[in-house]
Design a protein around this nucleic acid. Structure first.
Lengths: 95, 95
DNA sequence: GCTGATTTACGGCATTGCCGTATAGTCGCA
DNA sequence: TGCGACTATACGGCAATGCCGTAAATCAGC
């Protein structure tokens, strides 16, 4: 198991504990798309991801920190990126 | 020339007049994506378009009426749809 | 002329988009 | 060990959008 996996598990545990305490502080337990996971799947930094898909960095940050929930159109875009990151990128470059 | 063309020309003229009068009422002269055009290229109604691409109808309406400017993530989605409507749809169905 | 479907037009509130900046963690290097 | 560069987290804050609802207008077919 890789070290990132551990981080993921810890995050999950932290959420579980927060949930048990009735403390929603860290974020919604069951929520929208996991932007961080989608981005990490592309192996890009927040900055690179933002540029690649033409989204303001600040917005990506808000999503990853669960400060803001991506709205409907944004969720569609994210699911497209998740489904086929490369295809979306090339489509974007050509456009 | 088709009748729709006339409508387009009229809209253009109306904008030009508004612009000359310094009256921005009707909308930005040079503006964001022409959502209506993008949708019509798919030959779908607002309702069908909304469902197909998982965007709330109300949002599509606001865009077409120039009441709201699609934000950055939405613009990306729209340009993807414009670039390859079919590809995006199938990607969405599979997701 | 009437009817159903599509679109336009608006009111309105909660929520997000987006920017800026300060703090913290990581890594390689002198 | 300490510095600089890079990446990510945290958060303040305002303008603007997302999204819903509904009434009026326009359109297509009977």
């Amino acid at each position: 198991m890789k070290s990132e996996d551990f981080d993921g598990i810890m995050a999950g545990l932290t959420d579980a504990v927060a949930y048990a305490k009735g403390d929603a502080m860290r974020g919604r337990i069951v929520a929208g798309p996991d932007v961080k996971a989608i981005r990490q799947a592309t192996k890009l930094t927040q900055g690179a991801f933002a540029k690649a898909y033409r989204i303001p960095v600040g917005t990506v940050r808000d999503w990853e920190q669960n400060r803001r929930q991506p709205d409907a159109p944004a969720r569609v875009l994210l699911s497209l990126i998740k489904a086929d990151p490369a295809a979306i990128q090339s489509l974007l470059d050509k456009a």
